[in-house]
Computed example of a mutant assay.
Amino acid sequence: MSLYGYARVSTIDQDLTIQREALKAAGCAVIREEKASGTTTRGRAELATLLDFIGKGDTLVVTRIDRLARSIGDLQDIVRMLKEKGATLKATEQPIDTSTAAGKAFLDMLGVFAEFETNLRRERQLEGIAKAKEAGVYAGKGRKPSVPVEKVREMRAAGQGPSAIAKTLGISRMSVHRALQGVQA
């Protein structure tokens, strides 16, 4: 009977320290961490490793269920997988313990709210994009290119090498190569 911790944040500039410390305080000897979106379980190698490894009598511990999943479907799949393996799920900051009926019910309610929050955020994002488009300030194509492609090609045609072009324009050699893609080097 082991406690395995799982900590997750959505972006690389976020910190896992608070989650890590809470999981250690809860008695987790092994803690897997990753920086990835919680909107899907795809591409989350650390979670997959834990779910493959965890066994009968073990407990997966998270600080909050939104660290595990932001979709009720993904959350239910994870809980179902743990149950099949004879393992349980607990949260340090929420009264979730899938070994009890009340814990299971609370888990389902929180899962619904986590998914609802994600859907609200998406709606607000789409509303903001629509308003920006109406105002003519949203192109929808990402940030403007920072590399003057035509200038790179002109300099190359004039006989300058990628290193010289990069130095002159203050860009990386890789940016020069990308700008020249499809052009005879």
Rank of each mutant, 00 (worst) to 15 (best):
S2M: 12
S2P: 10
Y4K: 07
G5D: 04
V9S: 03
T11V: 08
D13I: 00
D13G: 04
D15F: 04
T17S: 14
R20D: 11
E21Y: 05
A22T: 08
A22V: 13
L23A: 05
K24C: 08
A25E: 13
A26T: 07
G27P: 13
I31Y: 02
E33Y: 01
E34Q: 09
E34W: 00
S37F: 02
S37L: 04
T39P: 00
G43D: 04
A45R: 08
A48Q: 12
L50F: 09
D52S: 09
F53T: 12
K56E: 15
T59Y: 07
T63S: 06
T63D: 10
A69T: 06
G73F: 11
Q76W: 03
D77W: 00
I78S: 07
V79R: 07
V79P: 12
R80T: 15
R80M: 03
R80C: 08
K83L: 09
K83V: 14
K85S: 13
K85A: 13
G86Y: 09
L89T: 06
T92W: 03
T92P: 10
Q94G: 01
I96C: 12
K104P: 05
F106H: 11
F106N: 13
L107A: 14
F113S: 03
E115R: 08
F116P: 14
T118M: 15
T118H: 14
T118C: 14
N119I: 13
R121F: 14
R122L: 11
L126S: 15
E127F: 03
K131F: 03
A132Y: 01
E134I: 08
Y138E: 10
Y138R: 01
Y138G: 10
V147D: 00
P148H: 02
V149S: 01
E150G: 08
K151P: 03
E154L: 11
A157T: 10
G161R: 08
A164F: 11
A166F: 10
L169S: 05
L169Y: 03
S172Y: 07
R173C: 01
M174E: 11
M174Q: 13
S175K: 05
